[in-house]
């Protein structure tokens, strides 16, 4: 069913495209870095209610911003199916005698890799800014969470892509899906500060568990136990990938 060669060539294409588009690499890094720098320095030393004892705002913010960068780049990777459609290349992919699942897995593999690359760049810059990680095992845990976050949102992106005719709806999704998901997740402030019913939405946002998991892994402090976050993200990523595949298979791309 899943053809490794096909997954590999789709992944390879994604890598080549990503690293050839220097402006894309720099462009996608811009927003998370500005958020990190301006929020981080702007709120530095300010008393923020709900922050755990002994955690500075920068420590709190870095995993949040990494989660945000994963959300943005993964959603984008899913929706970028529409760009391939716009430029005709999707037809070339779809007419090949390979299972549709392999095509989706290939795209997800490529998307995870590029998102992961960006997340690690941001983490490296944070470390230069004074962020401390506890050790190699915490880094490995963080990578696991990054992969799960990415798979979840690429799946979601694929679902949106299959429901859209062209890329003009992208700004709508940006403003009404991606930004709410980001703010609800508690990436930049503890989501406990949100009013009751909004907090309810936070609990169904997969990114909440992603960001919390990243915090647990990187700074050792989290709202939920690590294994709890992990389990929810495994479920959400499997569900989203399956749904994304289903919708991708169902829609027509010519």
């Amino acid at each position: 069913m899943i053809n490794i060669k096909v997954v590999y060539i789709l992944w390879l294409r994604e890598m080549k495209r990503f690293f050839r588009a220097k402006s894309r690499v720099i462009g996608t890094l811009g927003m998370p870095l500005f958020f990190l720098a301006f929020l981080g320095f702007g709120f530095r030393g300010m008393p923020i209610p709900g922050l755990a004892e002994g955690v500075g705002y920068i420590e709190f913010l870095v995993p949040g911003i990494i989660g945000m960068s994963m959300l943005f780049s993964s959603m984008f990777a899913g929706i970028s199916v529409l760009w391939d459609r716009e430029f005709g290349f999707l037809k070339e992919i779809m007419v090949a005698p390979v299972s549709r699942v392999s095509i989706v897995i290939g795209r997800i593999a490529g998307g995870i890799m590029t998102s992961l690359f960006q997340a690690i760049l941001i983490l490296s810059i944070s470390i230069l800014m004074g962020f401390k990680i506890t050790g190699i095992s915490s880094l490995l845990w963080a990578v696991v969470f990054l992969i799960l976050i990415s798979a979840t949102f690429i799946g979601l992106g694929l679902i949106f892509a299959s429901r859209m005719r062209d890329i003009h709806g992208f700004s709508l999704i940006m403003n009404f899906i991606i930004f709410p998901l980001f703010f609800l997740s508690g990436a930049v402030f503890p989501f406990d500060n949100l009013p009751g019913w909004v907090r309810g939405l936070s609990y169904i946002d997969p990114l909440t568990y992603g960001v919390d998991g990243l915090r647990g892994a990187l700074i050792g402090i989290s709202s939920f136990p690590l294994i709890y976050n992990f389990t929810i993200l495994v479920i959400s990523s499997v569900a989203m990938v399956l749904l994304g595949t289903y919708f991708f298979e169902k829609s027509e791309y010519v």
Binding site: R13, K16, R17, R20, A21, F87, G88, F89, L90, K91, E92
Partner: peptide
């Protein structure tokens, strides 16, 4: 295909 279906990059 009628329209180019190549990856320009």
């Amino acid at each position: 295909f009628q329209e180019p279906a190549l990856d320009n990059k």
